[in-house]
Amino acid sequence: MDLESLYASANPNIVIFLFTSFVAFLSWLVKSLVEKPILESKNTFNNFFEKRIEILVEVNTRLNFIAYFPKGKESEDFKKQLQEIILRDGKTGYLNKNTFDSILKISIDSVTDENLLLNTIKEINEDLNLQISKIQDEIKFYRRFSNFNPFRRFVGFALLSLQYVFSLIIVLSVLGLLIYGLIVTNWYWKVVIILLLIVGLYLINKWMEK
Score class of each variant (00 low, 15 high):
91 K>D: 04
91 K>M: 06
91 K>H: 06
94 Y>W: 12
94 Y>A: 01
95 L>C: 01
99 T>C: 02
100 F>N: 00
103 I>W: 02
104 L>Y: 05
105 K>I: 09
105 K>C: 04
106 I>Y: 05
106 I>R: 01
107 S>Y: 03
109 D>R: 10
110 S>P: 02
112 T>Y: 13
113 D>T: 04
114 E>Q: 12
116 L>N: 07
117 L>T: 06
117 L>D: 10
118 L>G: 11
119 N>F: 04
119 N>T: 09
120 T>V: 10
121 I>F: 13
122 K>E: 15
122 K>D: 14
124 I>V: 11
124 I>W: 02
124 I>P: 03
126 E>H: 12
128 L>W: 11
130 L>M: 14
130 L>G: 10
130 L>P: 00
131 Q>K: 13
132 I>H: 10
132 I>M: 06
132 I>R: 06
134 K>W: 10
134 K>S: 11
134 K>C: 01
136 Q>Y: 15
137 D>I: 12
138 E>T: 08
138 E>Y: 15
139 I>P: 03
140 K>M: 04
141 F>S: 07
146 S>E: 10
149 N>E: 04
150 P>T: 05
150 P>N: 06
150 P>A: 05
151 F>M: 12
151 F>Q: 13
152 R>H: 12
157 F>A: 06
159 L>H: 08
160 L>E: 10
160 L>Q: 14
161 S>R: 03
161 S>G: 09
161 S>D: 03
161 S>Y: 10
164 Y>T: 03
165 V>H: 11
168 L>H: 08
168 L>D: 06
169 I>G: 00
169 I>H: 08
170 I>S: 00
171 V>M: 10
172 L>V: 14
172 L>G: 02
173 S>I: 09
173 S>M: 05
173 S>D: 09
174 V>R: 07
175 L>M: 09
176 G>M: 03
179 I>G: 00
179 I>A: 09
180 Y>K: 15
182 L>M: 14
183 I>A: 04
185 T>P: 01
188 Y>C: 00
192 V>S: 02
192 V>R: 12
192 V>H: 08
